[in-house]
């Protein structure tokens, strides 16, 4: 398994409840809370049993790990039975499991519509956006793991820092020296050029491509498909001008740039936004060659 757990540190942080002399009212409330918690646990167990017995439910096996919590420091899989409803996505099922059975089940998510890029994970052995993956398209039991080749923070959450660093290493911002004279005047861009960069601008920074890439797994400094695609987005944008394009090609030609790619297409296959990543990388290689010939 390529799931990476950070090295354990010798530190246990227990949060012990301070027992302070409490007022009568507080005691009563504390008692009520305790009883509510017990009732809840009981209810959860009952629901779980009921769900397990029912065949209109789906079975999920979910990766669990928490560096801080006893019993979760050793990675394990937990099984959840979730009632199936039409249209249900993997994210819906995870949310149901969390809100009904185990509120500590942890995963990133926000938009629920494949635009925020928070919830790329490893579902039945492939990189997927949980919110965009229909349960009905999957074999059961459904295995849900964090993205491979990234350090696991907790459960399905991985550390994205390295991915962000690579994205930001390619000067990912528009640069040009020439603006139209009038402040209210736009730069012109023809439709073909806008069409050319269109797919490359759709990236949502989910990290699925990077996680699927063998080269990136072996070479930590490799820019990776998403960052190279970002460079492509600007290098091909004619509004930036020739000089900038030159600079852009130099960036992606560096040691850990485009030439590392061995055209395995894994990134292209997993990209939830259907960006032709491998094609973009290949095109940049060709541009770089053309460019070098020009300057010989």
């Amino acid at each position: 398994m390529s799931t990476q757990i950070p090295k354990q540190t010798e530190e246990s942080s227990e949060t012990e409840a301070e027992t302070q002399p409490a007022s009568k009212g507080e005691e009563r409330r504390a008692e009520k809370r305790r009883r509510a918690a017990e009732r809840r646990e009981q209810r959860q167990e009952e629901e779980a049993e009921k769900a397990a017995a029912d065949d209109s439910t789906v079975e999920l096996k979910v990766f669990r790990y928490d560096p801080q919590v006893e019993g979760k420091q050793e990675p394990r899989f937990d099984t959840f039975h979730v009632p199936f409803t039409k249209g249900m996505t993997v994210l819906d099922a995870l949310m149901y499991a969390r809100d009904t059975y185990d509120s500590s089940l942890t995963f990133r998510h926000s938009c629920r519509q494949a635009v925020c890029g928070s919830d790329a994970m490893f579902v039945n052995g492939g990189q997927k956006l949980a919110c965009k993956t229909q349960i009905s398209d999957l074999e059961e039991p459904i295995r849900v793991e964090p993205l491979p080749h990234a350090e696991v923070t907790k459960d399905l959450v991985v550390d994205m820092e390295h991915f962000y660093e690579q994205m930001e290493a390619v000067e990912p911002y528009f640069q040009t020296d020439e603006y139209p004279d009038g402040e209210l005047e736009e730069q012109r861009q023809d439709r073909e050029n806008r069409e050319k960069i269109k797919m490359s601008t759709r990236c949502i920074w989910c990290g699925a491509c990077m996680s699927s890439c063998n080269i990136a797994a072996g070479d930590n400094e490799y820019l990776g498909p998403a960052a190279i695609n970002k460079a492509y987005r600007f290098a091909m944008d004619e509004r930036e001008g020739e000089e900038m394009k030159q600079k852009r090609l130099e960036i992606i030609e560096q040691e850990h740039g485009v030439w590392r790619c061995q055209t395995q297409f894994s990134c292209t296959e997993v990209c939830p936004k259907d960006i032709p990543l491998t094609e973009h990388i290949q095109e940049l290689k060709r541009e770089a060659v053309k460019n070098n010939l020009k300057f010989w």
Partner: peptide, 9 residues
Amino acid sequence: SDPSRTFNT
């Protein structure tokens, strides 16, 4: 109920 200080959603 999650006692963790790490990513406690």
